[in-house]
Design a protein around this nucleic acid. Structure first.
Length: 433
RNA sequence: GUGGGUGUAGCUCAAUUGGCUAGAGCACCAGAUUGUGGCUCUGGUGGUUGCGGGUUCGAACCCCGUCACUCACCCCA
């Protein structure tokens, strides 16, 4: 039997209401903060991700689904040689910035607040809360440098999570400064960790050259202890970054948003500058981040726009749902879509009669269905019961001669004979729809 | 990519540790006086024990391989 690829998930009808619940609140909350939805392609030019995420990141090095489409027939041999490489999007910040620049949204209005909702792809080994196809909700505030906008997006994330009933989220925040102050800090760290080189894990010894910042993030106990004594980046921030970060923290406090200052916090993508943050939840296991984000003041210019600040975040929908189910918030009531009416026929010959009635009900916007498999009346009733319909309309030869139907309330069990012509009036009058 | 754990009916799990025709609960289907759901009762359908090989008189059980799921490393949502 053919199965879904490793790390992908079918979202079956029973779980759809939960997904919709999260998605609908996401859209509502984003709109409330003035963010507009944007949808970009599922795949993009490979170069877009290489340029934005960074060439030496795990994502670009080994986790991208990259492909080259079959050669298009062309009279121009040069065209056949230039087969472009595409990649299933492993993140959405770069595509959104690309669309923003490509369609000159920046010229229409320099500052744009956008959000998205959709699937992403990374070829990783799956585990709890980590999949090869997963979904993110994200916001991008493009063209903004004001630290208050950092506060705004954090505020938006927090209020969204609160609205859907996900209690117990923790906000961790840090500043990694701009490229200038980071260079200074990099040297400080290199010097410090080099002094403890023999105590670091093999991985971190390699990181010493490639990416010192990652050592701060290492979960190895010994590395962690050494990292804990490393000088925090705070001391290396330039005046501009210092002021910006202080303003963000002050803004959070003023708005009653609690946070944990975490000098070990580092992000995986190259484009981040200044403010970075992560929202974690203890119910998630090893992959405990429900989301993360930060400021990326150089990405717009990097992708060909005129220099402008920007900030954003992404939340993992699978992880939100995982945590939501673990929290078991009793206030959380999610109503599945249910049929209103089931039309049952006593004899099989009445099938077309039932079909006409079902069509009529649907035309009047009443969700209705019937049996097509020639089941017994008993079996039809069972089916109706299982689908939790409010009413069953029974069509029988007896009633038919009187131009009537039986209407059964499935909750009370009460049953009454109703003239067919009165049926819809009755539904309206009794407010049964 | 690396390591651990687990694969028996649609689901959750048994099978006296190598021995009868692989069982149970739930679910599903049908029936319990002739046109009626839920509760109860009765009966029924459903398994190449993930797959392939090996050891053995005999394998769900032991060995090898393989695949899948899962957790963790790594990394990240």
């Amino acid at each position: 039997m053919i199965k879904a690829p490793t790390g992908t998930n079918d979202i079956l009808p029973d779980r759809i209401p939960l997904w919709r619940y999260v998605e609908e609140h996401a859209r509502k909350q984003c709109a409330l903060y003035g963010y507009r939805e944007i949808r970009t392609p599922i795949f993009e030019s490979t170069q877009l991700f290489v340029r934005s995420i960074g060439e030496v990141t795990d994502i670009v090095e080994k986790e991208m689904y990259t492909f080259q489409p079959k050669v298009e027939r062309s009279d121009n041999p040069a065209k056949e040689n230039s087969r472009e490489s595409f990649t299933l999007r492993p993140e959405l910040t770069a595509p959104v910035v690309r669309a923003y620049l490509e369609h000159h949204l920046d010229r229409e209005q320099k500052s744009q607040k956008l959000f998205y909702l959709g699937p992403l792809f990374r070829h990783e080994r799956p585990q709890k809360g980590r999949f090869r196809q997963f979904h993110q909700l994200g916001v991008e505030a493009l063209g903004f440098s004001n630290p208050l906008v950092d506060v705004e997006i954090i505020n938006l994330a927090q209020s969204f999570l609160k609205t859907i009933g996900l209690d117990g989220c923790v906000l961790k925040i840090n500043s990694i400064g701009c490229p200038e102050c980071r260079t200074g800090y990099r040297n400080v760290l290199r010097k410090y960790f080099a002094g403890h080189k023999d105590q670091l894990c093999a991985n971190c010894r390699e990181r010493l050259d490639r990416n010192v910042f990652r050592i701060l993030d290492c979960k190895n106990k010994q590395c962690y202890e050494i990292a804990a004594r490393a000088e925090p980046i705070n001391n290396s921030l330039c005046a501009g970054c210092r002021t910006h970060f202080d303003a963000v923290l002050a803004g959070l406090e003023k708005n009653g948003l609690s946070y944990q200052l975490d000098h070990h916090l580092v992000r995986g993508f190259d484009y981040y500058t200044r403010t970075i943050f992560e929202i974690t939840h203890s119910a998630l296991g090893a992959q405990d981040a429900v989301g993360g984000g930060g400021r990326y003041d150089n990405l717009i210019a990097e992708l060909g726009g005129s220099p402008a600040g920007a900030t954003g975040w992404a939340l993992g929908l699978e992880r939100i749902i995982l945590a939501l189910e673990a929290v078991k918030n009793s206030n959380l009531i999610i109503q599945p879509d249910k049929l209103k009416v089931f039309v049952a026929s006593v004899t099989q010959e009445l099938g077309s009669e039932s079909f006409a009635l079902v069509s009529e009900l649907r035309k009047k916007n009443i969700a209705a269905d019937m049996d097509y498999e020639g089941r017994s009346l008993k079996a039809q009733m069972r089916l109706a019961n299982k689908q939790e319909v409010s009413y069953v309309i029974i069509l029988g030869p007896e009633e038919l001669t009187k131009n009537a139907v039986k209407l059964k309330n499935m909750q009370s069990g009460q049953e009454s004979e109703v003239q067919r012509d009165d049926l819809f009036d009755l539904f309206l009058k009794k407010n049964m729809i």
